[in-house]
Amino acid sequence: MATLLSVVPRMEFLRRIATGVALGAPVLLRSAELPDTARPAGVQAARILDLWYLTLAECGLVFAAILLVLTLAIWRGARRAGPPSTDEAAAHAGRSKRAVAGATAVCAVLLAGLLAADVWTDRLLSRIPTGDALHIEMIGHQWWWELRYRGADGRVVFAAANELHIPVGRPVVISLASVDVIHSFWVPNLHGKKDLVPGRASRISLRADRAGVFRGQCAEFCGLEHALMAFSLTAAAPGDYAAWEARQRAPAPTPATEDAKRGERIFQASNCAQCHSVRGTQAAGSLGPDLTHLGSRSTIAGTLPNEPGLLAAWILAPQSFKPGTSMPSSRLPPDDLRLLVSYLGTLQ
């Protein structure tokens, strides 16, 4: 990698990396199930889908009835030989009034039924048992997601970024907050939308009933990189989730190779440690994502595949991938960059 960075000019290197990202985008999309409200993976999404089908059925029947009445009126008008007499016109007006009154009453009943179904669905969504729930705090930033997993005592036991992991079959209570603008949490396969309003606490409860990786998205325009403010939600079997959680609770592993040790020193001496934290080291920054287990994540910044070349490109010029991001560019010598990426790769 040092040879690559020293031979290829930086801008040409970044251009090639950007091309690779464009070609690799389908791989990222295949790694997570595409957002689809018609394929619910949890009880709340299933209830919302039922409400949608009911609404679609009622609206479809009303539309079909309107078309039928309109067609009948045109057909009868075409068959009429001449203008109606006074008595016929009066009788027709009476029938029309009764028909309009009847149609209005039917529409009112249908709308009342939809309102009742909506209220009933909302109650069902909030009735999920949360006695043994997993508690997670999710904080929206421009433009990434901070995740804090809390223990039974309410204290934060570890942190992550952009990749949410939950166990299948267990309810999850997610406390939502924003530090800048209004964001919106949305995993279509599992639940509806929930806004994150600065200065206002909110929460959403959900449960995954089948394993999978589901794409989540900020559903409220939050600035320049709103489209790239995505996250993944991995629902795993309880045993697999417990193993993942145990790894996340552990501090960062001690570098084993000489390159990784030198890379750790570069990380501590550069501006990386001022913004990021790595548990088990002196790095305790809070402006950027926790990097304790960066190497175990599938993406960088929630959008790029977690590969050494792309990680190096992100460190060199994050604005090339997320214009407006608060992460500054790092002007590291090629060899230092190689060592830093080597160290970050050990954070499993």
Rank of each mutant, 00 (worst) to 15 (best):
M1F: 09
L5S: 08
V7R: 09
V7M: 13
V8Q: 05
P9K: 04
R10P: 12
F13R: 00
I17G: 01
G24N: 04
R30N: 13
S31N: 13
A32E: 03
E33R: 10
G42H: 04
A46S: 11
A46N: 05
L56E: 15
A57K: 11
C59G: 11
I66M: 14
I66T: 14
L67G: 13
V69A: 15
L70V: 06
L70R: 15
I74F: 13
R80V: 05
A81P: 08
E88I: 10
A89I: 13
A90T: 14
A90R: 14
A93E: 15
V100T: 10
T104N: 15
A108F: 15
L110C: 08
L111Q: 13
L115C: 08
L115S: 08
A116Y: 12
D118S: 14
T121H: 06
T121E: 04
T121F: 00
R123P: 07
L124V: 15
L124R: 11
I128Y: 04
A133T: 06
A133N: 03
A133D: 05
H135R: 09
I136N: 00
Q142K: 15
W143N: 09
W144Q: 07
R150V: 02
R150Q: 04
R150S: 03
G151W: 06
A152C: 09
D153V: 04
A160N: 08
A161V: 05
A161L: 03
E163L: 08
H165F: 07
I166P: 05
P167A: 02
P167R: 00
G169D: 02
S175A: 14
A177C: 07
D180T: 11
V187R: 03
V187E: 01
L190V: 03
G192F: 04
G199M: 12
I204Q: 08
L206H: 02
R207A: 03
A208C: 11
A208R: 01
A211I: 08
G212K: 04
G212D: 05
V213W: 02
V213M: 04
F214T: 02
G216A: 14
A219I: 09
G223I: 02
L224C: 09
L224E: 15
A227V: 13
F231P: 00
L233D: 01
A236S: 15
A237H: 03
P238I: 02
Y241N: 03
Y241W: 11
W244E: 05
R247K: 12
A250V: 01
A252D: 08
T254C: 11
T257I: 08
D259W: 14
K261Y: 09
K261R: 15
E264W: 07
I266W: 09
I266Q: 10
A269G: 06
N271A: 06
C272F: 03
C275V: 00
H276T: 02
A284H: 01
P289C: 06
H293F: 02
L294Q: 01
G302V: 06
L304P: 10
L304F: 10
P305Q: 10
N306P: 06
E307W: 06
E307C: 10
A312K: 02
S320V: 06
T325F: 00
P328H: 01
P334Q: 05
D335P: 00
R338M: 15
L344W: 05
Q348P: 02
